[in-house]
């Protein structure tokens, strides 16, 4: 009896585990192929350009809104929190550090994952179930080079640009709240921001953004590429792309912070 129960227990544990290992293996395989085709010609610059536009330019409003409110709220929060220690003057630097290191990269990446990761998975997934990916191959075109590589390159390049703009907008949001709501002197606020500014804060945020962009594109393409079974399959792929990208972004955010700032 005992062994039977134990066997059932192992079986219940084993199936998801085996499935997870298989999935993980598939993803690694996909990753290796993607990396290879990102550097091997031919390159499809037109597709790359389209992705830059979709992922970058059209994401600007979303990223701008996200970061300006993030900057504003962090000014408000830190002011009321720091009042307890009489350290209100630190607000400007706190806004700068939190926006550049954390808020702009992470929040922008999560928004872009929802916007672009989903769109990628849906588009590539539909191409898969309607045999368009097979058709590419029969026309002597490698789908990895034609579809995946342009998206991954665009993710790597576009996200840091978006986040840099997000940094500026977020800090501006903090400035607006600081000056017009909390009554800081504009010159003092700006001075205090500039004095405590460090390049590493910005650079670490941009490196994070690049990694996040890669993750978004990779998960979007991977989930779309392996989708099957019509509309339902594509829907599933879209959900998986967003969820897995978001989780990986949060995990890598921690890992990269360790790398940059733990001493």
């Amino acid at each position: 009896m005992m062994t039977r129960n134990f066997q059932n227990f192992l079986r219940a544990l084993g199936k998801p585990l085996v499935l997870f290992i298989i999935r993980f293996g598939e993803l690694v395989q996909f990753l290796v192929k993607t990396l290879y085709h990102c550097f091997a010609p031919p390159f499809y610059f037109k597709n790359f350009g389209r992705q830059l536009l979709d992922m970058g330019f059209y994401s600007l409003p979303v990223v701008g809104l996200t970061t300006i409110f993030a900057g504003m709220v962090i000014a408000l929060q830190s002011y009321s929190g720091f009042a307890r220690f009489g350290a209100e003057s630190a607000v400007a630097s706190v806004v700068f550090i939190s926006v550049t290191r954390e808020l702009a990269p992470v929040l922008s990446a999560l928004m872009v994952a929802g916007r672009i990761g989903a769109a990628m998975a849906a588009e590539i997934g539909t191409m898969r179930v309607t045999e368009q990916i097979d058709a590419l191959q029969t026309l002597s075109t490698n789908p990895f080079k034609y579809l995946v590589a342009p998206r991954v390159w665009s993710g790597l390049i576009v996200l840091p640009i978006l986040v840099f703009l997000g940094d500026i907008i977020g800090i501006f949001g903090g400035y607006v709240v600081g000056v017009y709501k909390l009554g800081f002197n504009p010159a003092n606020y700006i001075n205090s921001t500039l004095e405590n500014m460090e390049a590493l804060d910005i650079i670490s945020g941009l490196v994070k953004a690049s990694v996040f962009g890669f993750i978004i594109a990779l998960m979007g393409c991977y989930n779309g590429y392996r989708s099957k079974g019509g509309a339902q399959g594509v829907g599933e792929a879209t959900t998986n792309a967003v969820v897995s990208a978001s989780i990986l972004i949060l995990i890598f955010n921690y890992i990269l912070t360790e790398v940059f700032f733990s001493k």
């Binding site: 097979d134 029969t138 002597s140």
Partner: peptide
């Protein structure tokens, strides 16, 4: 790729891009 270049295929659903 060379092999595919010598072949053409008409897909069931058309599979147009």
């Amino acid at each position: 790729r060379d092999l595919n270049a010598r072949m053409g295929m008409l897909f069931q659903g058309g599979a147009l891009f």
